[in-house]
Simulated assay, not measured.
Amino acid sequence: MSERESTPLPQFKILGQPVHLSKDYIPWLLDRLQRGIGTHVVTMNAEIVIQATHDLELSTIIHNADLVTPDGSGIIMALKLHGITQPRYAGIDLGEDLIRLAGEADREYPVFLYGGKPQIVQKAAQKWQTELPNLKIVGIEHGYLDTEQQAKLLHQIQSTQPKIILVALGMPRQEIWIRDNFHLCPQAIWIGVGGSFDVWSGVKNRAPQYIRNLDLEWLYRIAQEPSRWRRALALPQFAILAILERLWGKHKDKLAPN
């Protein structure tokens, strides 16, 4: 293994989409940060898998990502069907862990926040700057930019070279945007964090821990945002397809290296 490579994590495919398996992803990511190995992280849930089954562009992005983590409870359920015990790692938790890593006194990992509404991304940044005084945020930009503003954003990212870039544009827009601009900062961790800025800013509440422990965070989000119910239709569709996939025995080889 060369200095520019990292130990591959085992992966398993669910409905044709890969997910990497680990009890703790942070040491693996920290190793890549320390060695300047760029990393595109996709946080996988049932909705993304269903969309990727008929969206070749999204499926290709997922397959080319350096790390695909099990965000949703549906992914954990599908893995259990194949006898694989894997803890869920929500994208918001991964984003928080990376920010806390960057905020440690002996670290030098500048952070860039992009996406969400103007006041929301500002409040999210303020929350973390207050909590982590050593955190170095080198850029904050909302997700409603015109063409000229977008060009300035890309120039800012390229000139500041942050090490952790959190993108909150929603799926799949954030995954496509990261794919298209990864070359501007090739040594950074790029991760789409969806609605995390809303929670960090205090505009929305995250489900209590006991609800998360029951794998019902998706239901709590629907209760907060009833308009999400159409998106939730992917869950039963995913469950049926995952069960059928298990019954058809398509995964005789089980785990495979990255």
Rank of each mutant, 00 (worst) to 15 (best):
V203K: 15
I222K: 08
Y220W: 15
K204Q: 15
R206M: 04
P236E: 00
N213R: 10
R230G: 03
L214E: 01
P226Y: 03
V203P: 00
W218C: 02
S196T: 11
Y220K: 11
S201I: 08
W200C: 02
R212H: 10
A207T: 04
L219I: 09
F197P: 04
I211C: 00
A234E: 06
A232I: 13
P226I: 07
R221Q: 12
V199C: 00
L235C: 07
G195L: 07
S201C: 09
A207Y: 00
Y220V: 07
E217R: 10
P208L: 03
A207G: 08
Y210C: 13
S196N: 08
L219T: 07
R228Y: 09
S227K: 15
L235V: 15
A223V: 13
L214G: 07
V203N: 10
D215G: 12
I222T: 10
F197C: 06
S201K: 04
E217L: 12
R206D: 03
R221E: 10
W229M: 13
R221V: 10
K204N: 15
Y220C: 09
I222C: 07
W229G: 12
F197T: 04
P236A: 00
I211Y: 00
V203D: 06
G195V: 06
N213D: 08
E217I: 11
Q224K: 12
E225C: 09
L235T: 09
G195N: 07
I211Q: 01
I222H: 05
I222W: 03
D215Y: 14
W229D: 09
V203Q: 13
P208Y: 02
R221A: 08
N205A: 13
R206W: 02
G195C: 10
V199M: 05
I222Q: 05
W200Q: 03
R206G: 07
R212Q: 15
W218K: 03
L233I: 10
R231M: 01
W200V: 02
A232Y: 14
S196G: 07
P226D: 04
G202W: 11
F197I: 04
I222N: 05
E225N: 11
D215N: 15
R221P: 02
G195K: 03
E225G: 09
E217Y: 10
G202K: 13
E225T: 08
Y220S: 11
